[in-house]
């Protein structure tokens, strides 16, 4: 029974959720602090701020989705746990890297763009949607990372 392959694959799943989640939490941290600063003076701005604060959180969900796909692939939630070879374990870990890396980097940078957007929305609430569009552009690369990870995982045959 090959436990090393399974362990490597599980590390991949942990990377996907760990790094993407860390990127999201840092990003939300920036945006949340900026939004709280605005709300401390203008509590009625909660609505326009909410989407800008929430947006950097998506990377964490993408990471969780890839991690869940790996868990399902390995059958970790059922009785029949798969035991991939070492090579297959590395393939799964490699498949997790796109979302881990893009999720981490884009989560942080999206948080910064959202914090800047919150500054814009504080002065001109009508411009908050435009600020959201700029922030959403950063999202593109997390989505590409997610799609790449899903395709790569599909390619791993156990």
């Amino acid at each position: 029974m090959n436990m090393i392959g399974l362990a490597i694959a599980m590390v991949g799943a942990a990377f996907a959720i760990g790094f993407a989640g860390a990127g999201s939490s840092i990003g939300i941290g920036y945006a949340g602090q900026a939004a709280n600063g605005v709300l401390s003076e203008d509590p009625e701005k909660f609505g326009p701020m909410l989407l800008l604060v929430a947006l950097p959180g998506t990377q964490g969900f993408y990471g969780f989705l890839v991690s869940f796909l790996v868990i399902m692939k390995l059958g970790l939630l059922g009785a029949n746990i798969a035991h991939p070879s070492v090579a297959q374990g590395w393939q799964i870990l490699g498949a997790c890297l796109p979302i881990a890396i893009t999720g981490f980097a884009s989560g942080i940078h999206q948080g910064k763009v959202c914090a800047a957007g919150i500054g814009v929305a504080a002065k001109q609430p009508v411009a908050s949607m435009r600020a959201l569009i700029y922030a959403a552009l950063v999202e593109t690369y997390a989505v590409l990372g997610l799609v790449a990870s899903i395709f790569l995982l599909q390619g791993v045959k156990l």
Binding site: Y30, Q33, G37, S40, D42, G119, A122
Partner: peptide
């Protein structure tokens, strides 16, 4: 310094006044 996110948010709201 990214520690000033809260402060800058507050200042942006105050600048409107």
């Amino acid at each position: 310094n990214h520690n000033y996110a809260y402060a800058v948010g507050k200042i942006r709201a105050l600048e409107k006044r």
